[in-house]
Simulated scan of single mutants.
Amino acid sequence: MTLHFMSDKELSRLEVLRDLTSGRLTVAAAGELLGLERRQVLRLSKAYQEQGATAPISKKRGRTSNRATPSRRGRTKTVQLWAYGLASRFVRQNTL
């Protein structure tokens, strides 16, 4: 048995999807509750029917952001080399 952790937003989506599948909600009402367009609600509903309760869990969880800045470690070394006038020697050494 695998444990899946869900945020509050994902839990509320799950409740709405359960109500939608059971017929207590319409697609339009579910979209209004979730703040999504009809098409996105249908996409989520299809995923819920195929994957079950794990469907609303973000697939991006645990990965780094696309907007994450690269490590400054290499950049700092380059700046230090330029500051001390050693960059040209370093470049020549590493290209040979």
Rank of each mutant, 00 (worst) to 15 (best):
M1G: 05
T2M: 12
L3N: 02
H4A: 15
S7T: 10
K9A: 14
K9L: 14
E10Y: 15
E10T: 13
E10W: 15
E10R: 14
L11G: 12
L11C: 14
R13I: 07
R13V: 05
L14A: 10
L14C: 10
E15H: 15
L17F: 05
R18G: 03
L20S: 02
T21G: 05
S22Y: 02
S22P: 00
G23Q: 06
L25W: 03
T26Q: 08
V27F: 11
A28I: 09
A28P: 03
A29I: 02
A30R: 10
A30I: 04
G31M: 09
E32N: 11
L33A: 10
L33H: 05
G35W: 09
L36C: 08
L36G: 03
E37N: 00
E37S: 00
Q40E: 15
V41Q: 06
L42C: 13
L42V: 13
R43I: 01
L44A: 11
L44V: 06
S45Y: 07
S45P: 02
A47D: 14
Y48T: 07
Y48G: 07
Q49K: 12
E50S: 15
E50V: 15
E50N: 15
Q51T: 00
G52C: 02
A53P: 07
A53T: 09
T54P: 02
A55D: 01
A55T: 00
A55R: 01
A55P: 01
K59F: 10
K59P: 03
K59I: 07
K59D: 08
G62R: 08
R63L: 12
T64E: 15
S65K: 11
N66Q: 08
R67Y: 11
R67G: 08
R67P: 01
A68F: 12
A68T: 12
T69P: 08
P70T: 01
S71V: 04
R72G: 12
R72E: 10
R72L: 10
R73T: 04
R75E: 00
R75V: 00
T76Y: 04
T76C: 03
K77P: 00
T78H: 10
L81W: 09
W82F: 11
Y84W: 07
G85T: 09
G85L: 13
L86H: 06
R89Y: 13
F90I: 07
V91D: 14
Q93S: 04
Q93A: 08
N94I: 02
T95I: 10
T95K: 13
